[in-house]
Write a protein that binds this DNA or RNA. Structure first.
Lengths: 345, 345
DNA sequence: TTGTAAGCGTTATCAC
DNA sequence: GTGATAACGCTTACAA
């Protein structure tokens, strides 16, 4: 059995409570005994037992992370690795730990969350996604359990602290960027329709078209759930239209990679034949061929801010709900070209 | 305060210990009372407090994951996302949870591990990498704490349970594959020299050359720590040699992406001008241009086996140490071409 | 088959 | 300033 607070107390000739106070660096303990106790702790190699501490203090210093239920393919998307990196960074600074859900299906993940919450395993939760009618959100709200959402809440927007980009503007700017290059036939390749982010980006796309007086064509809008294959399927569909688009707004770099692969197979050149504006600016966006013009949404900050605010809520339950908007920025690379009315497609 | 075992006991007219036994599904409790107690649990919405249970039973059902200290860039490499996915899968099946280290530097991560172990936060640990002189391994061994290594141990190979590929053979086969295509000027682009995997692959490369009677040229062997930039730097270096290689063995797909980008910039075509055999077969390996011939090392299994064996060790401390070798397989795609002696470079 | 009670290693509320 | 002592919610001998 490991060395406990009692062993230290005995060896230092004080009461266990005194040792506990020394650990907490209580001001009510004399510097002298603090020093003595600390020496003993070092000598005996004492380390506090977190489990015991958690039980007594009713707080674990652990934050739970909830992944989307994309059959566990989430890990494949660099977006999640990157938020996790931001979260990891924030959590470390605040001396908290991280626990993950491991379920694949929606139900499994829901159970994971219930176990985390009811089992008092975590002090708060971060949801890495936001989708419509998420029962996890309902559950957390009902139990008044501290959580923050990465993305825009489906409902009760004012009552849920969340960290998000202004995806409507981002998509609008991306579309406008293409319009300025002369394009008017612009396709939209989106992801899962239940995700709020997909909707926001679609909305921004539509807004840009409308403001530019370009008619929205329904056949130009495609949604695919699987990022890699999806990109490939989607372009094929778009390019087989009578009047195929000359430019694409693609909501994820991974999809864009699929798009690039397929256009290449079809003998089309990017950006000469077709332009692409992508999203997320993943690591490989600059390494693809051609390098992708992509909208950087600052994923790292998304994660760090989520942690910061969650811990704020945990440590001060009175904290008002907040909405944090992380800025985005279009990174111009080589996947977009001008569309000249007199030129070729 | 949440509902506890005592509340259930009172409501069901039994002792708390009986409730505890019902939870554990002890055979010493009559079916009748089990049923009654379970009904009360449901009615009251009881959920066991894991923290309390951990303290009493001295086991947490949590596994700690240790990332390499690549300044937290590890997350960027799909390898780690993928092992994590495998681990996640295994852990879920066994009803364990996952806790991560969040430190960036080697020292921070070491502290994370000590906190996990001494704080009794986890029952066992998985190291996602293996490098030379890792003080974490020393620490875990000294404390006789259950852990498994993904990769080949630097020392005490027989005394550390580990899950690995046969990287020597894999690299040898990759090199032989190129040799068979007619190449004899084959470069090696490796990663961090402290990682065991780098060494093994280099060794396999050398072995293949030797057996084929091809002289090893030191200027053909390059190591880079940063995967993306590294690939770019390395290939520039190799191609500026008087007698540049016609084929490359690249130890990571991410590096290969950088290589591809640079060869493209230099106006060279893959595989016409230069061939590439890559490693890991990441998701994007088939989406790059050209698609990468890559050695699949079955990352998912690496993770799942690690979990399986770790939990075996936790639940049965007598378990002998084991070495598990996961098979690999070369996936042929379009990044390799024949080298015709009469043809052009 | 079930109940009683003593831990598990802390923190926190009293006293002194 | 420091020391007893009662929680925290559960498991597990030992009794009954």
């Amino acid at each position: 059995m490991a060395i406990t607070i009692k062993d230290v107390a005995k060896a230092a000739n004080v009461a266990p409570s005194t040792v506990s106070r020394v650990i907490a660096d209580s001001p009510r303990i004399s510097e002298e005994t603090k020093k003595r106790v600390r020496e003993v702790m070092d000598k005996l190699g004492y380390h506090p037992n977190f489990i015991a501490r958690s039980l007594a203090s009713q707080s674990t210093q652990v934050i739970g992370i909830v992944f989307p239920s994309s059959g566990n393919l989430a890990f494949q998307n660099p977006f999640y690795s990157e938020v996790l990196r931001g979260i990891s960074e924030g959590v470390h600074q605040k001396h908290y730990s991280l626990q993950l859900t491991t379920g694949k299906t929606e139900d499994e993940i829901y159970d994971d969350v219930v176990k985390m919450v009811q089992g008092r395993r975590v002090d708060g939760i971060i949801l890495l996604y936001s989708k419509m009618n998420d029962k996890i959100v309902v559950y957390l709200r009902k139990n008044k359990f501290p959580f923050v959402l990465i993305g825009k809440p489906y409902e009760y927007t004012e009552q849920i602290t969340h960290v998000d980009n202004d995806n409507i503007s981002a998509a609008k700017e991306g579309t406008e960027y293409l319009i300025k290059l002369g394009h008017s036939c612009i396709g939209f390749i989106g992801g899962n329709k239940n995700l709020m982010v997909t909707n926001d980006r679609l909305q921004g796309y539509k807004k840009a078209l409308m403001e530019a007086g370009i008619e929205l064509k329904n056949e130009y809008v495609i949604h695919e759930n699987f990022l890699l294959k999806g990109g490939q399927v989607a372009v094929r569909e778009l390019l087989s239209l009578d009047n195929p688009p000359t430019a694409l707004l693609v909501v994820d770099d991974l999809m864009s990679l699929g798009v690039l692969r397929t256009t290449h197979e079809l003998g089309l050149n990017v950006p000469e034949d077709i332009s692409i504006v992508s999203f997320n600016n993943a690591l490989f966006a600059e390494l693809s061929n051609p390098a992708l013009t992509s909208i950087d949404i600052n994923i790292l900050s998304l994660g760090m801010e989520a942690v910061k605010n969650l811990i704020g809520m945990i440590e001060n339950p009175q904290e008002p709900t907040k909405r944090i908007i992380i800025p985005h920025q279009i990174i111009e690379r080589s996947s977009c070209g001008t569309y000249d009315l007199d030129g070729e497609l």
